[in-house]
Amino acid sequence: MAKILTPPEALHRAAALCSSAEHCTADIREKLARWGVTEADSRTIIDRLVQERFIDEQRYAVAFVKDKFRFSGWGRIKMRYALQQKRIDGSDIDHALATLDEEQYNDRLLELLQAKSRSIRDDDPEARRAKLFRFATSRGFESALIFNALKQVVP
């Protein structure tokens, strides 16, 4: 069984964790619970981390959006949902999503669709379009953007 941490130990470990990478309140609350820290002590620790700017939800949301866009190829819908699951405030989510460059966003969608199109064996254009549309929606891209991009990928 894991050692239960005292509040000062938990604060020190959480601060070290937050200084090495961006974390949101929900992530740290989960870690503290796993370390055996009581709910009252967790609130105190999280308040201190926020006060000392180890945790910043807006900064976390911006970093999350940039990473998921660049490395995972996620669209805005999927990123918004994931951030809502982590209980990030709606205004912070909106701010983070607004940091995405529209041209890069459209180019990334087009790249993903072209790569996926090469792996589809179906010759029927409608079936290809349907498969590509489902793929892009599963990545969290908006329907209108997908339709525009499909015009360039599937003639």
Score class of each variant (00 low, 15 high):
L97N: 04
A40W: 04
R34V: 11
A115P: 06
S42F: 00
R108S: 13
T38F: 03
L112F: 02
D101K: 03
R70K: 15
S91I: 04
L110M: 10
R118L: 09
R59C: 15
A96N: 07
Q58N: 15
T25S: 13
V37E: 01
R29S: 13
A98G: 09
Y81R: 15
E111V: 03
D67G: 01
Q84S: 03
E111P: 02
G73E: 13
R29W: 07
H95E: 06
G75P: 11
Q114S: 10
F64G: 01
I46H: 08
I45R: 13
L49T: 00
D101G: 07
A61S: 14
F69I: 12
L112N: 02
A82Q: 09
K66V: 11
K68M: 15
E111Q: 15
V65R: 14
G36W: 05
D47A: 08
E102V: 11
R53V: 09
R34D: 03
A26L: 05
E39S: 12
A33K: 03
R43M: 08
E52H: 11
D27S: 08
K31M: 06
E39G: 11
R34N: 04
E102C: 02
F64I: 04
M79G: 14
S119H: 14
D56W: 00
D41Y: 07
K31A: 03
T99H: 14
A33P: 13
L49D: 04
R53A: 12
L97C: 10
T38Q: 01
K86V: 00
Q114M: 00
T44L: 10
H95M: 13
S42M: 02
I93P: 03
